[in-house]
Design a protein around this nucleic acid. Structure first.
Length: 443
DNA sequence: GTAGCCTTGAAA
DNA sequence: TTTCAAGGCTAC
């Protein structure tokens, strides 16, 4: 067995291809990209690319364009939230278990390559396509977990404690998140300044995209947690595949509520409004979560689940009913469209906020706030999209079209689930069923 | 501003 | 006590 260090040092930095020096801000990188990422985030740097945002970042040219270098850092999965706001030295952060698991996966792969000659992509296991083995739908290997979700989940209202409510304004947010209040180099020409008619000044858009990204949950932690729960279900009996999928959806829904509850802007809303928004878009977010995972990490002709398992589409076609199989196929078509559009984590982070802050939700206490956040998210997405792919005319419009496809698909999925629920085919007493009922009673 | 090396300190 | 991923320092 190779030493931990030897395993790490064999890899190349996913940003510039230099020698990796260890895990830094979420994944294995070299020392210079680690330092660059730290300086950029700590000093709130705003770079502008002099070209078309397509500069090559390699060891020899990494100094040429900090803008493209930073975008590449984010694209490969470096985590903004790993840079400490308090600048405290030493110790470990919440990524410790993630690094440990990533190492274990790498060792596992290394062993498989040596034993059986599997061909696998190199690089960090966290954020690339073509990553996992196709397993069909087998029971999961044991994954230790210290905090298993409870068998009887609490209701949504108890997941959104009213003590969380703090009313801070946009201007407070801006002052907290900018160094001196003066606009960054990109702010002056931000499309948002043309779009916004609402009074609060927009924070610099790249920064808002960063804030959205910061809110993203840790995928590996989620994977371990839900895998452990599935294992628990399997040990408790032998539920069928559909029931296990419902448990997965239910647990994912938990993580979505937790994500929303702790997210920027959303935590400023009153609990009533929070519940109304979540009741309205839970299935969109659930679908978006799966779509996002499959666009960023999935493989063709298979469905990547939140547990990291892959299910062959041919298996779905032969084992699921006609309705479910066609829903999955439509979802997969959407994944393919988004994959062709090369939608990245940043864009998905914006889209999630667009979906969550739906200004069409009725009887909100603070509709103007919801509307303004929706506009901010849309402007962020527009600016980011233009800055990364200005040569692709209409890409933003394509993204919005995909969003409406997500909405129509999630409505169909909800109807399907409701029918299955009425016929007793869905496990009861969970968040999934609560949401299903809540939305129907609102409609 | 960059990047290599050093120091720190919580978790294992 | 050891590990190792944070932040800091400094020559370039």
């Amino acid at each position: 067995m190779e030493s931990r260090q030897a395993l790490c040092l064999k890899e190349l930095c996913p940003v510039c291809g230099d020698q990796v020096s260890g895990y830094h801000y979420g994944l294995l990188t070299c020392e210079s990209c680690k330092g660059f990422f730290k300086r950029t985030v700590q000093n709130n740097k705003q770079y502008v690319c002099a070209e078309q945002q397509e500069c090559t970042i390699d060891r020899g040219q990494r100094k040429r364009c900090p803008s493209c270098r930073f975008l590449k850092c984010l694209h490969v999965g470096m985590r903004l939230e790993a840079v400490r706001a308090d600048r405290k030295r030493g110790g470990r952060n919440k990524f410790g278990p993630m690094y440990k698991r990533d190492r274990a996966l790498k060792q596992q792969r290394e062993a498989l390559i040596q034993d059986g000659g599997f061909r696998l992509d190199s690089g960090s296991s966290t954020h690339h396509r073509n990553l996992t083995f196709t397993t069909g739908f087998h029971p999961l290997p044991m994954i230790p977990s210290t905090s298993l979700p409870t068998a009887q989940p609490p209701h949504l209202c108890s997941l959104l404690p009213s003590t969380q409510y703090q009313c801070t304004s946009f201007s407070n947010w801006k002052s907290q998140h900018s160094n001196n209040g003066s606009p960054g180099p990109r702010e002056g020409k931000s499309p948002s300044s043309r779009i916004h008619s609402f009074s609060p000044p927009a924070p610099s858009m790249p920064q808002l995209v960063m804030e959205f990204l910061r809110c993203d949950p840790d995928e590996l932690q989620l994977q371990s947690k839900i895998s452990a729960r599935i294992l628990q279900e399997e040990e408790n009996g032998t539920p069928n595949t559909f029931s296990l999928m419902c448990v997965m959806a239910d647990q994912t829904l938990f993580s979505i509520v937790e994500w929303a509850r702790t997210s920027i802007f959303f935590k400023q809303l009153k609990v009533d409004d929070q519940m109304k928004l979540l009741h309205s878009c839970w299935s969109d977010l659930l679908l978006l979560d799966t779509v996002c995972r499959n666009v960023l990490q999935g493989r063709e002709n298979s469905l990547l689940l939140v547990t990291g398992q892959e299910m062959e589409l041919s298996y779905v076609a032969s084992h699921a009913g006609l309705t479910l199989a066609s829903l999955v196929q439509r979802g997969q078509d959407l994944v393919e469209k988004l994959h062709i559009l090369k939608v990245d984590r940043q864009e998905f982070a914006c889209i999630k906020f667009l979906v969550l802050f739906n200004p069409d939700v009725k009887q909100l206490e603070d509709p103007r706030f919801v509307e303004s956040v929706h506009e901010q998210a849309e402007s962020s997405l527009l600016e980011y999209t233009l800055s990364t792919s200005s040569h692709l005319i209409g890409r933003f419009a394509h993204l919005l079209l995909c969003l409406s496809e997500i909405r129509s698909l999630s409505t169909l999925a909800e109807d399907y689930l409701y029918c299955k629920h009425l016929s007793g085919g869905v496990p009861c007493n969970n968040l999934l069923i609560e949401m299903l009922h809540a939305k129907r009673s609102c409609a």
